[in-house]
Each structure stands twice: as structure tokens, then as C-alpha cells.
């Protein structure tokens, strides 16, 4: 019985859990950006670029998790 493939699949599933908290963080970031635009409508362009930057930087963690799981699935199995 080949147990390795199953273990690799479990590992890939655990690795992609890195995106769990990232979704929460990005949602918080967008919510606060909405608050800030409501308070300061004239600073919308600056707020938008800062928000995209923050979201992109925090998204990196999720992408790393995804890459690890893709590596596990397609390279090691």
C-alpha cells in the first residue's frame, strides 16, 4: 500500500492553510481603507495605492503556502 501519496496530499492541504489568516487580514485592510475614504474622500487615490500595497505584501504569505503545496503535489508525488 502506497501511503506516501496520501501523506503528500495531507501535507499540501496543511500548507495551503497559510491563506486562512491572510483572507482575514486582507478583509480588515480593505474595511479600514473604506473607513478612511469615508473620513477623507479627497485622499482616495493615496489610500487606494497604500491599500493595494499592504494587501499585496500580506498576500505573499498565502502565495508561499500555495507554492509549497503545488511543489508537494506536482514535484514530489
Amino acid at each position: 500500500m502506497d501511503i506516501t501519496r496520501g501523506l503528500i496530499a495531507i501535507g499540501a492541504g496543511i500548507a495551503v492553510c497559510a491563506g486562512m489568516m491572510t483572507g482575514l487580514g486582507e478583509g480588515t485592510c480593505a474595511a479600514h481603507a473604506c473607513d478612511a475614504i469615508g473620513k477623507n474622500p479627497e485622499a482616495e487615490s493615496k489610500i487606494r495605492s497604500t491599500m493595494i500595497l499592504g494587501i499585496a505584501l500580506s498576500e505573499t504569505v498565502a502565495i508561499y503556502g500555495l507554492l509549497v503545496s503545488i511543489l508537494l503535489m506536482f514535484v514530489f508525488s
Binding site: 499585496a56 505584501l57 498576500e59 505573499t60 502565495i63 508561499y64 500555495l66 507554492l67 503545488i70
Partner: peptide
Amino acid sequence: VSMSLRLFGNILCGGI
């Protein structure tokens, strides 16, 4: 590394 992996990961994920 992070800039390249971000673009690569997103587009690869879309393709998959």
C-alpha cells in the same frame, strides 16, 4: 524573490 513569486504564484494558480 517576493515580487517575482507573487506574480508567478497568482498567474500559475489561475492557470491550474
